[in-house]
Design a protein around this nucleic acid. Structure first.
Lengths: 138, 138
DNA sequence: TGGTTTTTGGTACTTTAGTATGAGTACTTA
DNA sequence: TAAGTACTCATACTAAAGTACCAAAAACCA
């Protein structure tokens, strides 16, 4: 998909170049309005994509570093969120404990706290809720 | 993918159209250049957002009901898939049994079979695998 | 019609998940 | 410094989840 976008972008840029060339052949030495417009178009096109991607990713990909907004609202701490990420990936409490160098009971505590904050009864439900709230990647 | 190509093609056509428009205005020398540029900027800004949103959604929403191809490959039956859908939604075996008017042990059987077919040890892992295989909505 | 797959369900068992409670440590803030 | 919060871990328990094995209808298909 990204290849397609890249290919088409290249095509557009090539088009702009051709227009520029044809412009020079017709009227040389004048202000090139068409070139200006194409540059503006391209730039704003990219800005549109960029901004959309920014907002989209900030909603769906808070990841390990960013978007503490929703997490703060829910009262989910850093460690809890870290555990949640592992729960979503399908690890057991024991496995998560090993990965984070914590005991299984600690993981259980974190998971239980997550259930309260996410209003879930099971970890599968917690996964679903977390996805609905867009605090994890789906 | 087709949507992307269509969108880009439209973009190129729009570009050509704008070039033609600018040429007319250049020849007549009447139209406000600044206005034209701002319109172009706005339009392409929106196009950028639109395309990005299109590609983003087409990536995250593969299917809902259909695509029996992958299910056949994995050897997942209709009933098993039905159970899987409920597992993903965070229901317990008991709840799924009640919803589908089946006993809990039947659900357990289906779920266990799903684990083999999805190469998963836990239901959370099965959810993850099903998502990777894009046989369920994420 | 006979064979195959699907679907259903059971028992018995082990493992994991989840709850409740308490408690110590560390770090921050009023 | 006291209060609060986040983090850690433990025990003891209950509830689900999951495994293994079996068996019998029901649907499907050649």
């Amino acid at each position: 998909m990204k290849k397609t976008i890249f290919a088409f972008s290249s095509l557009i840029i090539a088009l702009l170049f051709l227009f520029k060339l044809s412009k020079y052949s017709y009227l040389s030495g004048n202000l090139n309005i068409e070139l200006l417009i194409s540059i503006v178009a391209l730039v704003f096109f990219c800005i549109g994509i960029y901004i959309n991607k920014k907002t989209a990713t900030s909603l769906t990909i808070p990841l390990k570093t960013g978007n503490t907004g929703k997490l703060d609202e829910l009262g989910i701490s850093k460690r809890e969120y870290e555990v949640l990420q592992h729960v979503v990936q399908g690890f057991s409490n024991k496995e998560i404990g090993e990965k984070l160098h914590l005991s299984e009971s600690t993981i259980k505590t974190h998971v239980s706290n997550l259930f309260v904050k996410l209003d879930a009864k099971r970890r599968t439900q917690a996964i679903q809720k977390a996805k609905e709230l867009k605090i994890i990647v789906g």
